[in-house]
């Protein structure tokens, strides 16, 4: 379980006059859940990139349980992300030609020459939890809802301290979206992971502890502040 502390984080691109992200301070307690909303171009993807170490901010600190990942090298951030972050993306990024089980195990296979003991059982358990009965079906045959459920199982495999989801229900129909919402929040709770979700889905954001709104890279709304 990880807590996040962002301090004076700014992300600037050479071709943009304003920072793509400008967050003076943001705290997300360990085990809590946070919804990030905002219009297109508000800096939501940049926010995800920065908190997962995919991108280094131009300035500021991004501390997870006290460790500033903004100061880590790219290789170290890759390692940190593999150990601590479970990513769920809008487009699932499952790999055709591999079955559901192999897709769930894939990130671990890239990190471990020999799969650690128990990973296969955990993958089967997670797949069962997300409602995928057999992991041996090729993912090409799955519905979009099923694909996203496999992606959730993959995100949870390494028991990450934080689950980051980027528009996880955006490409799903209402029923599948609702199922994925329920799964994400329930499993994050079961696994004791901090959950950060970028979403336009009010049903999903309504299930989370806190909601912030990004506009032009800045935090323009925070349910925690409003409640206070």
């Amino acid at each position: 379980m990880l807590d996040l502390e962002m301090e004076n984080v700014a992300v600037r691109y050479p071709d943009l006059p304003q920072p793509a992200l400008d967050l003076p301070r943001l705290l997300v307690p360990a085990g809590s859940s946070l919804a990030v909303t905002g219009p297109s171009g508000a800096g939501k993807s940049t926010f995800i990139n920065v908190i997962t170490g995919l991108e280094r901010p131009s300035a500021g600190a991004v501390r997870w349980k006290g460790q500033d990942i903004a100061r880590l090298s790219e290789a170290a951030r890759d390692r940190w992300r593999a150990r601590n972050v479970g990513l769920v993306m809008q487009e699932f990024h499952l790999f055709p030609g591999l079955d559901a089980m192999e897709n769930v195990l894939l990130p671990a296979r890239f990190r471990h020459p020999r799969l650690p003991a128990g990973f296969r059982d955990r993958a089967a358990h997670l797949l069962a939890q997300v409602g995928i009965g057999t992991g041996r079906r090729g993912v090409e045959t799955f519905s979009r809802g099923e694909m996203q459920r496999v992606a959730i199982a993959r995100a949870l495999l390494a028991r990450p301290g934080v689950i980051v989801a980027d528009e996880p229900t955006a490409s799903l129909d209402g029923e599948s979206g609702a199922a994925v919402c329920a799964l994400l929040t329930a499993l994050a709770g079961t696994e004791g992971a901090t959950l950060i979700v970028v979403t336009h889905d009010t049903a999903l954001s309504g299930r989370l502890d806190r909601r912030i709104v990004l506009t032009g890279g800045r935090c323009t709304g925070d349910s925690a502040m409003e409640a206070a």
Binding site: L54, A75, R79, R81, L87, M89, H93, F110
Partner: peptide
């Protein structure tokens, strides 16, 4: 590109 980006996002090392 996106597939490679996804691999990296899931923690695959650059060397992999």
């Amino acid at each position: 590109r996106r597939q490679i980006g996804a691999l990296r996002a899931f923690g695959a090392p650059r060397l992999a």
